[in-house]
């Protein structure tokens, strides 16, 4: 409480309104800070002084780095779309401005990108890459794809499936036989679809509160791609079967004694790397894959498949496709087991 007229006056002062006058500039507020400054010269930091436009290859590299490391979503997407048009508009037999071995490691992390438009654009770009180059880099691509498949965000999971689909299209054999490609990918499928079970869980069933596995609309699609993946891993391709059946009769398993056509033929021996466990191992033979699948995943897959069949509708149909693939793939497994 102010005890005197003077104090009252002092208090009033705070709430007085400034009078505006015609023809004069408005009074500056109390807390006005003068931010003007004087400079003798202005230096432009990034001024390009070249007369010629940058070459297309350097521009390509620039956009590549933008796409891989820019902070803004739109910039990444635009850079990617620039790269896509560059590739698609180029004549068919002209080599890539940069080799795939440089492009892929830079762009693969974008599978986990937060923006959906970037991921869609990335898939478009990847489809333009030469098919023959992908096979050798399937392992690193799968690393990111798996991370995408188990990602928290549902959209990223869906898009990662699209990437896997593309990988299966272009490098089927490599995807299932590269180190970790079979077991680890199947594991991420299991956790994505909610079919995984904790190794330490008790026998009590608890109603899962997990929101992760229930993918809703995406579920049939997941089933279909799992079917594709299993088909690639478990079902013998047509040519091999032909060879086997038709075969030059006295010669058995000829292709196994030929000079291998694939690169790094002895990679599965893992002569130089650190030792791998069951998950990270390479499963080159179909029989190996069948064995591991049967041991680790078949019960879970069949249980999940049965549930999905009951759902009917789209999911049921997809489950039927899966069942067919499974039957086909595992048909000759038991007799293989007998002969051993």
């Amino acid at each position: 409480m102010g005890s005197s007229a003077r104090k009252k006056k002092e208090k009033k002062k705070d709430f007085q309104k400034a009078k505006l006058k015609v023809g004069k500039t408005k009074a500056k507020p109390d807390n006005f800070t003068d931010t003007s400054f004087k400079a003798k010269s202005i230096v432009v930091n990034q001024q390009s002084l070249t007369t010629s436009a940058p070459s297309s290859s350097s521009q390509f590299a620039h956009y590549l780095s933008l796409a891989s490391s820019s902070r803004s979503d739109t910039q990444r997407r635009d850079a990617l779309s620039y790269l896509t048009t560059q590739l698609s508009s180029a004549p068919v037999n002209r080599p890539l401005p940069l080799p795939t071995s440089i492009l892929l490691p830079k762009l693969l992390p974008l599978i986990l990108d937060g923006s959906s438009s970037v991921r869609a654009q990335l898939l478009k770009f990847l489809r333009l890459l030469p098919v023959s180059d992908i096979g050798d880099r399937a392992e690193s691509a799968l690393l990111y794809t798996r991370a995408g498949m188990t990602h928290l965000a549902a959209e990223i999971r869906v898009d990662a499936l699209a990437i896997l689909e593309w990988l299966l299209e272009v490098a089927k054999e490599d995807v299932v036989s590269c180190p970790g490609g079979w077991v680890k990918t199947l594991k991420s499928f299991m956790s994505m679809m909610g079919w995984a079970s904790s190794s330490g869980s008790s026998k009590w069933t608890s109603t899962s509160k997990a929101s992760f596995g229930k993918a809703g609309k995406a579920f049939p699609r997941q089933l279909l791609i799992l079917a594709q993946f299993l088909k690639a891993g478990l079902v013998e391709s047509e040519e091999i079967r032909e060879v086997k059946i038709g075969g030059m009769f006295p010669l058995v398993d000829v292709e196994k004694h030929m000079i291998p056509t694939r690169s790094n033929a002895f990679a599965h021996l893992n002569l130089f790397g650190s030792s791998r466990d069951e998950e990270g191992e390479m499963y080159i033979d179909r029989e190996d894959r069948q064995r591991v699948f049967q041991k680790l995943f078949q019960p879970a897959v069949e249980a999940g498949m049965a549930n999905a069949k009951k759902e009917a509708g789209e999911a049921g149909r997809a489950a039927a496709v899966l069942a067919k693939v499974l039957k086909e793939g595992m048909a000759d497994y038991s007799d293989v087991n007998d002969t051993q």
Partner: peptide
Amino acid sequence: KSYSEDFLNQYGQYQSQRDIFLASPTTA
């Protein structure tokens, strides 16, 4: 117990991130 599935998903995510990291520790 109820969230063990969620945890397993996250653990799987951790494992795949770890693999990415171990594949190229400097650039990842």
